[in-house]
Amino acid sequence: MWGERLVETKRCYFTLITLDDYYDVKSLYTNNKVRKYLGGAIKEEKFDRIFPCMVQKATHTWVVKEKKTEQFIGLITLDRHHNGIDTEVSYLLSPRQWGKGYACEVVKEMITFAFENLKLPRLVAETQTANEASCYLLEKLGMNHEKTVTRFGAEQRIYAIYPEKG
C-alpha cells in the first residue's frame, strides 16, 4: 500500500505520505509563500515534531507527484474539519507548480474520490477570504460558499459540496 498510486489524474498520481517525503513536505510547510494564508511558515523544529504524526495518521494524506517526471507537486488531505463533523479537503502546492492547473486537477479528483470511494455525504473546504485564488478555485469546482467565520485571526470562507444525485 505504501508507495502505491492510490489516486490518479491525467497528469498526476497520489501516494500516501511516508517518512521518505520529509524534505518535499518540509519545503511546503517552511515556505512563506505557500503558508501566506495559513499563519506563515512553520519553523523547522516544529515541522520536525509534527511530521512523524502526519505520517502516522496518513490514512488520507497524500503526496502528489507529476506522472512523467515523478516531480513533487504538493500535498492533499482529507481530514476532520474544525467543526468536528465534516470532512475537509485541503491542499498545499509547491510554488513551482502554481498557475499550471494542477490545483484544479488535483482537488477535483479528490472531490470525486471522496464521494465515489469514501461515500462521504458532503465535503468542505476552508480558506482565508483574502486568498482570492483559492476562493476562485473552490467556486470553479462547484463548491458553494456557505458561511464566513473568523478563525486564526482572519476572516475565513467555508465552502461545501455534495455528491451529485443520479
Rank of each mutant, 00 (worst) to 15 (best):
E70Q: 14
T148I: 05
N144H: 04
E139K: 02
L138N: 02
L120D: 01
V124W: 12
I76L: 06
N32A: 15
F115Q: 11
S27D: 15
A160Y: 08
A125W: 03
G142H: 00
K46G: 05
Y102F: 13
I50A: 02
M54A: 14
K147Y: 10
Y37C: 07
C53K: 06
C135V: 12
S94T: 08
P163I: 14
Y13S: 13
A133M: 10
L19P: 15
E44H: 05
C12F: 13
R157L: 13
K67N: 03
F51M: 05
G99D: 00
K100D: 06
T77S: 14
F113Y: 15
L138R: 00
K10H: 08
G166M: 08
Y29C: 01
E155H: 00
F72V: 03
I76G: 01
G39A: 06
H82V: 07
L138K: 00
S134E: 08
H60M: 04
S90Q: 03
C12H: 15
L75F: 10
F47W: 11
Y13C: 09
W2V: 10
P121F: 01
A154M: 12
L137V: 11
T15W: 08
T59Q: 02
K68A: 10
I111K: 08
C135S: 07
E88Q: 02
T127Q: 10
V63G: 08
L19C: 10
H60Y: 09
I85P: 01
W2E: 07
F115G: 09
M110T: 12
T9A: 12
R157N: 15
T129Q: 07
S134T: 03
W2T: 11
G39V: 00
N83Q: 12
V34M: 04
K108W: 07
R11G: 03
M143V: 14
V34D: 09
R151N: 10
G40I: 08
R49G: 09
F115E: 07
